[in-house]
Design a binder for these strands. Sequence first.
DNA 1: CAATTATTCAAGAGATTTGTTGAATAAATT
DNA 2: AATTTATTCAACAAATCTCTTGAATAATTG
Lengths: 219, 219
Amino acid sequence: MKGREFKDAMYDGLAKLMKALANPARLEIIEMLSQGEKSVEGVVAATNLTVANASQHLQVLKNNNIVKFRKEGHYVYYSLVNSEFLALYQHITKYAVTEIAELEKTLNRQREDNKALNPVSLDELEMMIHNKNVLLMDVRPSAEYEFDHITGAVSVPMNELLCCLKDFSKEQEIIAYCRGPFCVLADEAVRILSENGFKVRRLDEGYPEWKMRQLESNQ
Amino acid sequence: MKGREFKDAMYDGLAKLMKALANPARLEIIEMLSQGEKSVEGVVAATNLTVANASQHLQVLKNNNIVKFRKEGHYVYYSLVNSEFLALYQHITKYAVTEIAELEKTLNRQREDNKALNPVSLDELEMMIHNKNVLLMDVRPSAEYEFDHITGAVSVPMNELLCCLKDFSKEQEIIAYCRGPFCVLADEAVRILSENGFKVRRLDEGYPEWKMRQLESNQ
DNA sequence: CAATTATTCAAGAGATTTGTTGAATAAATT
DNA sequence: AATTTATTCAACAAATCTCTTGAATAATTG
């Protein structure tokens, strides 16, 4: 293989990977799958996609070794292929929200609207978690909590939040988290809790970022 | 801004960044610019692109905050916007060559063809570099060497390699490096030197990866 | 074994991306 | 001021990507 052929093969292959990521619907699917495996239906339920469309996007991700699947009964469960990919995806999103002015601005406006500025970082969380007066609240759907969650968190899915308000103390500080920086669940939780007089902040990132840390520190 | 609008804005923005990277010509340009700034002409000289096409790709990269430019006389010099982007790009390429089977295979076949298997890693290089019996050889064009190079390397551009053979000892081990894992210069250098009876290996990665390390260790 | 359910396949229209061509700018040199 | 040189712009056809629609598969249930 000549030098030019080799280069073309390598850059074409790299571009193919980037193309698989160059679509908003697929990025959203990746974020959903970073919460744990999901059936096609499960993906559809959490996005605006039609079933056929979600399936097609999942094929693209599968053909690029980004997701894997297993069959069980009627269902096909998809999940991210490995933690190396998850680490890469998180590097990309982290870069985007810190280095791309437009995205940083959109993110901050969203958090401002929901009184969720001044978020807690994972580092801070680590310090605070041993404080009995802090409540860590997982506001994702319960299936995602059950699959896995940050150690010490309690599950309060968004649809149960309003009716559970009386169970929480206004003395303790609440830290809400969800799927990650692009997820709006924790923002909404902060707004609702805050409007009801609770001391609440959101976690800067979400479950997948915490998980990644766990994996890294176990190496 | 409603939750769905926010998500769409974020994923669209992220996809826009990925789209900028989803093209082999632009990836090659990025790799060229990671050696140091280059004029449009300079980019053209190192790729298969026409001037107008290279300029267009550079506009795309500019509009996505991946490259910046400065004007000097006739020339417009482009360079990568910051080391955060370089770190991200290297994470992507590293992931691609280790996790995507097809790319890994292509890379290994190329190195096999050039007797450049068993490459030296940056870690190993660090250990060896104090050994007087090791010669670190930068085989990139001299302009790139002059812009910056790995500490202790000597410049032997590919076009001068054949006539310089007599200057090197067959006793010392030569380590050749170039622009990075996708670059063929070091492979060719290894093949030529090896066929002429020298003890030679290539560096697994290249100048930009070494540079990134320097930046990280200085933090 | 027919009906139901979850997923995939196939085809097509519309939008986007790509590289080419030739002309237009803009800065330096003659 | 005219010419040369490096770069950008604008327009276009070809290729690719995207989403929708409706049908096809494959596994389970009645």
